[in-house]
Design a protein around this nucleic acid. Sequence first.
DNA 1: TAACAATATCAAGATATATTGATTTAATAG
DNA 2: CTATTAAATCAATATATCTTGATATTGTTA
Lengths: 107, 107
Amino acid sequence: MDIFLKTVSALNDETRVLLLRFIDENGECCVCDLQNSLEMIQSRLSRHLKLLKDAGFLRVDRKGTWAYYSVRSPLDRFRLEALQEIRHLDIKLPAFKKSNEEKGCKV
Amino acid sequence: MDIFLKTVSALNDETRVLLLRFIDENGECCVCDLQNSLEMIQSRLSRHLKLLKDAGFLRVDRKGTWAYYSVRSPLDRFRLEALQEIRHLDIKLPAFKKSNEEKGCKV
DNA sequence: TAACAATATCAAGATATATTGATTTAATAG
DNA sequence: CTATTAAATCAATATATCTTGATATTGTTA
């Protein structure tokens, strides 16, 4: 029950649905990218990314000080079905604005 | 997005998961039955049943003053998958205690 | 080591949701 | 019509979640 509720509760927020959809469409993103693209402050992003990760939707890959988030794979049946549902939502996604990581990103 | 969030939000509560599972296993129940079986007060039940109904999981069939709730059918793909997930949860379900409707149920 | 940048966590206030008991609505029986 | 019963709604309180700005942590570079 607890795992199910954690999974469902992660989906129960507009911000996280948008985040998941954005990362699903654009592939691996670091938090800088997301700050740039979605215009959210860093602490808010960090919180929601953690919830999505803990609920089994995202994985994180750290390289130096950067954290790259991507959709976890493979997803189990239920999470995949939820993601499919999210893929079909009529959402206006902001464009991907890459941060200039190579030169040091400074968001 | 709104419909998706409403659907997900209906699943995001232990009471409602239990209710949905109970009705799924036992078939059509009136609110009396649920009060007897689950030992919840009526206003609480009524609220959660409404949320599950409005989210597309339950239907209600009124006969006189009684309201019979059952799992809506057919369920769409996502809701069905959620229900399957709930069917596999390791939950201790209380026994079904039928109310004595024939003689007038008085809960 | 010190300074800096990316990310995570914390604390406070704001918003949403759940629970309870009381009240209201609606259908039926007398 | 009145009384009764099932169910829905309301009002108050309690609990949980979200947002923000501040602070802490971690890795990198000078």
